[in-house]
């Protein structure tokens, strides 16, 4: 039951992009086409889950026992950066097809605040490892959902007759706002 609440709240009620504003850069950057949106979602989901597990272990088996919690930011970002490199190298060797699909997006992920954000949130919310993994997976799904819906919206607005001043980014932001409003309808479910 707890897991279901975590999942619904992370995907719909507190959507990571539309409600918590994490990962807005890729949300605006790679949402021009549905295909790239799907590729980015895959890469983010992969790294987000791995990163949450590794940072969880670091927090509880390295930082807490030695009383050096203030090194959280530094150690987490380094772990994520090296993890991204590692994933890139391993994928290249093990699954060239997957690397082809996700490759371009992987380097961008190091500076994706959604990854670091979720890793820190897992610690802040005092989840155990299993809950942390579920939370990371749910957030990745939420990110994908928002990104893919938004990419679909943008493909349509590109073909519409938008007022001159609003073309491009402004209209994209305003449609994101309306999408966020739609997601607000879910608040109160959990």
């Amino acid at each position: 039951m707890e897991y279901i609440i975590i999942i619904i709240s992370a995907i719909l009620v507190n959507n990571i992009v539309l409600n918590q504003f994490l990962g807005v850069c890729p949300f605006l950057g790679v949402s021009k086409k549905i295909e790239t949106a799907i590729g980015m979602t895959g890469a983010v989901a992969f790294v987000m889950v791995l990163a949450s597990i590794v940072t969880f272990l670091i927090q509880h088996y390295v930082l807490n026992p030695f009383g050096i919690e203030y090194l959280q930011t530094i150690s987490f970002i380094l772990v994520i950066a090296s993890l991204v490199q590692l994933v890139e190298i391993v994928l290249k060797k093990v699954s060239p097809a997957l690397y082809q699909a996700l490759g371009v997006f992987l380097p961008l992920i190091t500076t994706n605040c959604a990854i670091l954000g979720v890793a820190i949130l897992v610690i802040q919310k005092e989840f155990n490892l299993m809950e942390g993994v579920v939370y990371a997976v749910a957030n990745a799904i939420g990110f994908g959902l928002a990104l893919i819906i938004f990419a679909g919206l943008r493909e349509h607005t590109d073909l519409q007759n938008v007022p001159k001043g609003l073309k491009g980014v402004p209209i994209a932001l305003i449609s994101a706002g309306i999408l966020a409003m739609a997601f607000m309808g879910f608040s109160g479910i959990v």
């Binding site: 504003f21 402004p170 932001l173 305003i174 994101a176 966020a180």
Partner: peptide
């Protein structure tokens, strides 16, 4: 939602 709309 207001954040997105205002910034837009």
């Amino acid at each position: 939602p207001g954040a997105f709309i205002a910034l837009g």
